[in-house]
Amino acid sequence: MPTQTFFNLPEDKQQRLLDAASAEFSRVPFNSASINNIIKLAEISRGSFYQYFEDKEDLYYYFFNSLKKDSRKLLEECLTEANGDLFLGYKYYFPKMFKMITEEKHAEFFRNMFLHMDYRTSRKVSPGVKKRECTKKHGDLKGHLYEFVNMDSLNIEPSEDFHLLIRLLMTILFQTIGDTFAREMSEEEAVTSFNKKLSWLQDGVYLKK
């Protein structure tokens, strides 16, 4: 998170720094991004940058959070629309998530993020659920993703397996979006690919006898 010094800046100066971050992180992936380019575009000194942010990563994830619509809230809405059906909820969620990241003016930022996503980034941007949220008693989980899912329909141990299942679903979603950018897939192709993978997880890949 930025320091209080950053939040004390006039809004136009804050925005100038975020605009510089947008330009640089859209130009190249995170690992290739240059603080020198960012401070040059933002017209600030390197010393000032480190008064506002701990490092490049701190700025990167703050910039991401300033962009994103509430993806967790969107997932919760889709699960509610699906009456708690986890897999149907994700079928509703994927095309909305797809539009959110491919049709915005920051599409190049998201392209770089998904094409070069690693484990750390996937954990940072996922609207999933943490293991500690699942280890609480069911009744204590109000406000967490758990309460939006009909657990009776899933053959898992809620307190141990739910966060693993959500992480697996988000991995499939992120991998599909990465493929979409890499292969320049259409929305229809991306949705078809995601739903196919989802059906493999839900129904298995063996022929029914």
Score class of each variant (00 low, 15 high):
122 S>M: 14
115 L>H: 02
147 E>I: 11
152 D>M: 08
135 T>L: 08
16 R>P: 03
12 D>M: 14
30 F>M: 06
206 Y>H: 12
107 A>T: 13
90 Y>V: 05
94 F>W: 02
53 F>R: 01
49 F>V: 06
54 E>Y: 15
185 M>G: 10
137 K>Q: 13
209 K>P: 14
176 T>M: 05
148 F>N: 10
92 Y>C: 04
58 D>W: 00
143 G>W: 05
2 P>A: 08
20 A>H: 04
202 Q>F: 05
17 L>S: 04
199 S>G: 10
67 L>C: 04
82 A>M: 01
123 R>L: 12
6 F>A: 00
86 L>P: 00
93 Y>N: 03
197 K>F: 14
122 S>R: 14
192 T>I: 11
47 G>H: 10
95 P>F: 00
103 E>Q: 14
56 K>S: 04
199 S>Q: 13
98 F>H: 15
181 F>I: 02
180 T>I: 06
34 S>K: 11
4 Q>P: 04
95 P>W: 01
77 E>S: 07
26 S>M: 07
207 L>V: 11
168 L>G: 12
31 N>S: 11
57 E>G: 10
166 I>Y: 08
51 Q>A: 09
80 T>N: 06
71 S>R: 14
105 K>E: 15
121 T>S: 08
171 T>D: 13
39 I>W: 00
154 L>Q: 04
38 I>Q: 01
58 D>T: 01
105 K>I: 09
164 L>F: 09
3 T>F: 04
56 K>D: 06
205 V>C: 12
203 D>R: 14
133 E>N: 12
65 N>L: 13
50 Y>T: 02
44 I>H: 00
99 K>M: 10
11 E>R: 10
159 S>R: 14
168 L>V: 07
50 Y>R: 01
47 G>N: 14
74 L>Q: 05
70 D>V: 07
79 L>P: 00
